Structure formats: C-alpha cells, structure tokens
Simulated scan of single mutants.
Amino acid sequence: MALPGLAAADVRNIVLVHGGNVDGSTWREVYDRLTAADFNVTISQLPMTSVEDDIAAVQRNLDAQDGSVLLVSHSYGGVVITEAGNDPDVKGLVYVASFQPDTGESGNMLLASEPTEFTPDKLTVFEHGHFLVDEEAFVSLNGNGLSDEDVRFVARSQPMANSVNLAHEVDAAAWSEKPTWAVIATEDRVIAPGLQRRMAKRAGSTVVEIKNGHMLPMTSPDKVAEVIAQAARAVE
C-alpha cells in the first residue's frame, strides 16, 4: 500500500514496540505499509522479564538508529515507550490502543481505574511469576476484529510475561515533554476506550479513533500506518 504525501516527512526512523504476551509479528502489516513508503522501520522484541529489561531492549534499538526517531507502542508497550521515549533522539510518541501512564502510575492502576473483563482470573500465573492469558479469554478479549484462526494462533504463540510488569510505576513520562498521538480502539475489551481517551486528553495527544478491537495493528493496519505516517510528518 502506498501512503500519500510522505516525501516531506522529517523523521524517517520509526521504532515499533509490541504489547504484552505477544511479539513483534503483530506489527507486520503496519511494517509493510510504512517500509513501502520508504520509512526505516525497526520492531523491538521485548523479553518481558521486567519493564527495565524491556526499556533496555528498546534503548538498544534506539541507539542503532541514525537520526531522529518516532517511537510507537501497542498495549503494554505504552508503559515501555513512556520511559524509553525520554531519549533525546525520540521526537514524538504514538500510542496505539495503549497504556499512556503518568509518572508514578502502573498498568494495574490504570486498569483498576476503569475495569474491563481483562481481570486477574483470566490469567494463569506460574511459580516463576510469569503468566499467560487463558486461551478462551484471549480469544474473547483480543479477538474482536480478528478471524478465529488468527486470534487462536496469537493466543497459542504467547510469550510469557512477568506479572510484575503491570505493577511497574513509571519514573518519568516522556509525553509530558514531547508531542504524542493516541489511536483509540473504540471496541477495546482489554484497555477500556474511556480510559484510552482520558489518558490521551491529559497528555494533550492528537487523537484518532478506530472502530475495532484491541489488536489494531493487525485489524486496522491501513489506518494505523497512516496515523504513524502523519506523526512522522508533524514532528521535528
């Protein structure tokens, strides 16, 4: 897909950060559209052993870039980019159906402030502290907008995440100093749409709403890629 009007984009480097219990392949359709438009796109792979480890993984990707960067998250990845985005080469942040925490906030705090069906009873936590989302819960909560075949593949290929990640309190919110965009999934069953709107409003984000479920990078790649491209044109 060719995205219109991208020749004037000042930021050519884009780093995409995936959500919890999934991997970077969830960005594939967005990646294809952005690289076709001649952006330099890197997809971080998070170890999910701790938020600190995830931030370090993104930082290594940022260090590998030549020039300014637009940093993009999905879901839990918003916790990560909110801290990693303090890197001076990051010129803007895009949150896609994503947590957008303030300093001192955690994912758990945000979820509790406007609950959905994504509750602790939907998780299997193992002795080592890592967890998986139960398959049927994953299908029902993440699956709207995806085929049953696709969502079951993603559910069954989950990498385990450390349960402490959602308790991590952000040290310094990069969005307080940098321009941000928020792509709201209006039918999200994981992070409530109202919560997404509230986080975006307090951050002063440019808001785009897409009528689809939580997995927007997979369900609505055209629209998501266009917002990212618009952000790249806007930042300096």
Rank of each mutant, 00 (worst) to 15 (best):
G20W: 02
E114T: 08
P88I: 07
V15H: 01
S73M: 03
S68C: 07
A200T: 13
L146T: 06
D63L: 07
W181Q: 04
R233S: 15
S25K: 07
V11L: 04
L46S: 05
P88V: 08
P179N: 13
K178D: 03
D66P: 05
G213L: 02
E169P: 07
A137L: 09
V11S: 07
A97T: 07
I191M: 05
A37F: 04
G20M: 04
N212S: 15
S50E: 04
D150V: 15
D121T: 02
R28V: 03
M109E: 15
S220R: 08
S140E: 15
Y31V: 06
S220E: 13
L141N: 05
R156E: 14
T219P: 09
A2H: 07
A155D: 07
V133G: 08
K223M: 13
E114P: 03
G67N: 09
N165M: 15
A172W: 06
I81A: 05
A192F: 05
A229D: 00
V51H: 03
V164L: 14
G145F: 05
A64G: 11
V227A: 03
S157W: 03
V17T: 10
R198I: 00
A174C: 01
G194R: 05
I228T: 12
N212H: 11
V17K: 04
A9T: 08
S98R: 00
A172H: 14
H74F: 01
S220T: 01
A8I: 05
V235D: 02
A203F: 10
V139H: 04
M160R: 14
N86W: 08
F126P: 02
A232L: 06
E83A: 09
L141E: 04
T116W: 00
D102I: 06
D171G: 08
A161V: 08
P221H: 10
P159E: 06
T49C: 00
S68A: 14
K211V: 14
P115C: 06
T49S: 00
T82A: 15
P159G: 06
K122N: 11
S205E: 14
A225F: 06
V15F: 01
F138L: 08
Y76R: 02
D66L: 08
N40V: 00
K122H: 09
T116Y: 00
L6F: 05
P101K: 12
I43Y: 02
L6T: 14
P179L: 12
S205G: 12
A185S: 02
W181V: 03
V235W: 02
F138I: 06
I43N: 00
V154P: 01
G5K: 05
E226W: 08
R12P: 08
T42Y: 01
G92N: 10
T180V: 09
I191F: 04
D23T: 11
A185W: 03
L111E: 12
E209Y: 00
R28K: 11
P179K: 11
D134T: 09
A155K: 07
H130N: 13
S220P: 01
K91H: 10
G143F: 00
P4D: 11
S75G: 09
A173W: 10
E169D: 07
A8W: 03
I184D: 06
G107H: 15
G204T: 14
E236S: 14
W175A: 14
V151L: 09
Q230E: 15
A167F: 00
D23E: 03
L111V: 11
